[in-house]
Amino acid sequence: MPKKLKKTGKQGGDLFPDSSTLNRLRDHDRKLEAEIAHKIGELFQAAKLDLTTLPDGGRARPGDLLFKRTDFGQERRYIIDCVQEINPATVKRAYEDFRYSLDMYKRQDFDEYWLVGARSVGNPMRKRPENDRRFRALDLKELEALLATPKSKRGAATTRIGKAVQANEKEINLAINGLILQIDARLEALNGERPNSDDGRARVSQETSDFERMKAELERIREMVAAFKKSKASEKEVVTATKTFRQGVEEWWTNKSGEIITSTAKGAVLVSSIGLLALMKADSVAAITAVAAVVNGGAIQKAKQIGTAIKRLGKQALAADDDGAVQ
């Protein structure tokens, strides 16, 4: 408990705190807020999320802590302001500082502002003043529940691709690594070519671009698979990355089928790509047809088994999930 405030002879005996008492009160408040920040840090650590301590930015940049996360390939930044209590006064003060910081700068370095207190007292004003979706106030229990949401859904894959990733993670990573090695070898060969004609140089440039794009998409899938395994990426992000790669492979086949059929190296890359998609339950009629064309030297119409496969996959397409594993 703070000491009694000194009595002065002024103002008819009113009580006024002296400077040393004010300093002790401020130090006490800072200590309590530091303890709250520590508890917040423990909650984020349990949720496997990283926090950064922010320097004092005053009203121009309120907040004590920062955490970042990636949503749909874009980084989002969340400022956390630590207080002892969530009450009308703290919410009003925090929202005013939040609005002041928005008015001061046209470009913001955060997407949401969270006021977090050890507890909520009484019946504070609305926790989202003016229904501002960038501002929220919550106590430690509410924060714990919020951070626990991803953990409760861990392992609950619902799409064909998500389930395949959970079941075949090691095999998928091996397939990706092997395919990247094939692409690197192809890029190295292209880098060694020195065509004299404009057409030749344009061909090398286009092929290099195709393989570099394919490699980047594979690295993205590998990154999302690893993050999904650790519950740091959503199932939707894995599905999106896989679909993007599949679309690129199919477009490559559509535009360059003649070259792919007559090139051993390109044909091998195509077959390995479709093999990876099959492992991830993301193959399609177009993809299977492309592989059959390569394996059979382009004689698609003569291969009865291809027609059978297409019919089978067509039936599966009708019952496929929303993840588009078969189209």
Rank of each mutant, 00 (worst) to 15 (best):
A233F: 05
V249P: 00
A227H: 03
K266P: 02
K256T: 08
A265W: 06
K243A: 10
E250C: 02
V249A: 06
G267Y: 05
L270Y: 00
S231W: 07
K236G: 09
E237L: 04
K243W: 07
G248M: 01
K229D: 12
T264L: 14
W253T: 01
S263V: 07
F228M: 06
W253R: 03
I260Q: 06
V239S: 01
I261D: 05
T254S: 13
A226W: 05
W253N: 05
N255M: 10
E235G: 04
T254H: 15
N255P: 04
R246Y: 02
V271L: 09
T262Q: 15
G248V: 04
E237G: 07
A227K: 13
V271H: 04
A265I: 10
S231C: 12
T264N: 12
V238N: 07
A265Y: 07
T240H: 10
G267W: 06
E235S: 06
K256N: 13
T254L: 14
V249K: 00
G248T: 06
S234T: 15
K266Q: 13
A265Q: 11
F245I: 00
E251R: 14
R246A: 02
K229I: 03
A241Y: 01
V249N: 00
E250W: 00
N255I: 02
V269P: 06
V239G: 02
K230G: 09
L270E: 00
E259Y: 12
T242R: 02
K229F: 08
T240R: 14
T244L: 09
W252K: 08
S234M: 12
E259T: 11
E251L: 12
S234N: 12
F228I: 01
A233N: 06
T242G: 02
I261K: 12
K256P: 02
S231T: 12
T242N: 04
K229L: 08
V239H: 00
A268R: 10
R246K: 12
K256F: 10
S257C: 03
A233T: 02
L270K: 03
A226E: 15
K229S: 12
T262S: 15
S263R: 05
L270W: 00
A268M: 06
T242H: 01
L270A: 03
K229A: 08
K236C: 04
I261Y: 05
S231N: 15
W252F: 15
S257R: 13
T262D: 13
Q247T: 11
I261N: 07
A233E: 04
F245K: 01
S257K: 14
T240I: 10
N255Y: 09
N255T: 06
K243M: 06
T240D: 11
T240C: 02
T244V: 08
K229T: 08
K230V: 09
K256Q: 13
T244I: 08
A226D: 13
K229H: 12
W253E: 01
K266Y: 09
K243E: 07
E250I: 04
V271S: 09
E251F: 12
G267N: 11
T254V: 11
K243C: 07
E235T: 03
N255K: 13
